[in-house]
């Protein structure tokens, strides 16, 4: 039982600091909302936050969203096909 609690705590601590899924899921939810309900932002409303780190298509370096804090960022999700 103690082992189970420790393990659960470890998982929650790790996931509190590794957002690829947690923050990703928030994004999914928001995007799904946008698509299904034509979401429009409401001023003053607390909205989700997220970060991601993904490889640049140019090779080598990684692109991290939070490196652009201090500026508004437009994320353009698209496909080249």
């Amino acid at each position: 039982m103690i082992q189970f609690i420790i393990k659960s705590l470890m998982i929650s601590v790790v996931f509190a600091t590794i957002p690829p899924w947690i923050v990703g899921q928030e994004m999914v939810d928001q995007v799904a909302t946008a698509i299904n309900y034509q979401y429009t932002p409401r001023q003053g409303k607390q909205v989700p936050h997220f970060d991601f780190i993904l490889p640049s298509i140019d090779g080598g370096k990684m692109i991290q969203l939070s490196n652009y804090r201090g500026k508004k960022v437009l994320l353009l999700h698209f496909a080249s096909w």
Binding site: M27, P48, H49, H77, A79
Partner: peptide, 19 residues
């Protein structure tokens, strides 16, 4: 991995990292 199911999708994030 970001969980998108469709494209194209623009998303605007404010200067504090909030949607």
């Amino acid at each position: 991995s970001l969980g998108l199911t469709v494209v194209p999708v623009p998303i605007l994030v404010d200067e504090h990292g909030y949607l």
